[in-house]
Deep mutational scan, measured.
Amino acid sequence: MDVFMKGLSKAKEGVVAAAEKTKQGVAEAAGKTKEGVLYVGSKTKEGVVHGVATVAEKTKEQVTNVGGAVVTGVTAVAQKTVEGAGSIAAATGFVKKDQLGKNEEGAPQEGILEDMPVDPDNEAYEMPSEEGYQDYEPEA
């Protein structure tokens, strides 16, 4: 019985440690998101679009440190934060509304985080759909 109880105690310690790591990862992701939003706020009209992409990228980098179902929630929060940063930029006159959601080359930025393969159960990952990809044929 002692062996059984000791095993359960060790398992509990492992769960607590994993929860603490997840909590730490979420806190880091939130900190990076805040950094990115402050970065966007300090940019001029020309830099705002690039700044919004930076927020998304920093958040995406930190999301990889967070495991399990938390990833889905962090990704949703990050996307809403990026959308909010863009709205703030438009409201303050840093950028025109028609410039939001495009990178410096004018290509749409939507789907940055949505296409990231995420499995809350950590069982399997699927690649994003290939609808947006084109076949590449090298020139002879």
Rank of each mutant, 00 (worst) to 15 (best):
residue 4 F to M: 04
residue 6 K to C: 04
residue 8 L to D: 00
residue 9 S to C: 15
residue 9 S to R: 14
residue 9 S to Q: 12
residue 10 K to C: 02
residue 13 E to K: 09
residue 14 G to I: 12
residue 15 V to Y: 13
residue 16 V to G: 04
residue 17 A to S: 11
residue 20 E to G: 05
residue 21 K to W: 13
residue 21 K to M: 08
residue 23 K to V: 07
residue 23 K to T: 10
residue 24 Q to P: 00
residue 27 A to S: 06
residue 29 A to E: 00
residue 31 G to L: 05
residue 31 G to Y: 05
residue 32 K to S: 06
residue 34 K to G: 03
residue 35 E to L: 13
residue 35 E to Y: 10
residue 36 G to H: 15
residue 36 G to V: 02
residue 36 G to D: 03
residue 37 V to D: 00
residue 37 V to T: 01
residue 41 G to T: 13
residue 42 S to D: 03
residue 43 K to H: 10
residue 43 K to M: 12
residue 51 G to I: 03
residue 54 T to G: 05
residue 55 V to I: 07
residue 55 V to F: 09
residue 57 E to H: 07
residue 58 K to M: 09
residue 60 K to R: 07
residue 61 E to K: 15
residue 62 Q to D: 02
residue 63 V to I: 07
residue 65 N to A: 13
residue 68 G to Q: 02
residue 68 G to A: 04
residue 69 A to C: 11
residue 70 V to W: 09
residue 70 V to F: 02
residue 71 V to P: 01
residue 71 V to F: 05
residue 73 G to C: 15
residue 73 G to S: 10
residue 76 A to T: 12
residue 76 A to V: 08
residue 76 A to Y: 13
residue 78 A to V: 13
residue 79 Q to R: 13
residue 82 V to P: 01
residue 82 V to K: 08
residue 84 G to C: 13
residue 84 G to A: 15
residue 84 G to D: 03
residue 84 G to F: 11
residue 85 A to V: 09
residue 85 A to S: 07
residue 87 S to L: 12
residue 88 I to K: 02
residue 89 A to Q: 05
residue 89 A to P: 05
residue 89 A to G: 07
residue 91 A to S: 05
residue 92 T to W: 14
residue 93 G to W: 13
residue 94 F to S: 12
residue 95 V to M: 01
residue 96 K to H: 11
residue 96 K to W: 06
residue 97 K to C: 04
residue 97 K to D: 09
residue 99 Q to Y: 05
residue 102 K to E: 03
residue 105 E to C: 03
residue 109 Q to G: 03
residue 110 E to S: 14
residue 110 E to A: 04
residue 112 I to A: 04
residue 117 P to F: 09
residue 118 V to T: 06
residue 120 P to K: 09
residue 120 P to Y: 06
residue 121 D to S: 13
residue 125 Y to W: 14
residue 125 Y to F: 13
residue 127 M to H: 06
residue 128 P to G: 09
residue 128 P to R: 12
residue 131 E to R: 08
residue 131 E to L: 05
residue 134 Q to F: 08
residue 136 Y to A: 08
residue 137 E to H: 08
residue 137 E to S: 09
residue 139 E to F: 14
residue 140 A to Y: 04
residue 140 A to N: 07
residue 140 A to D: 15
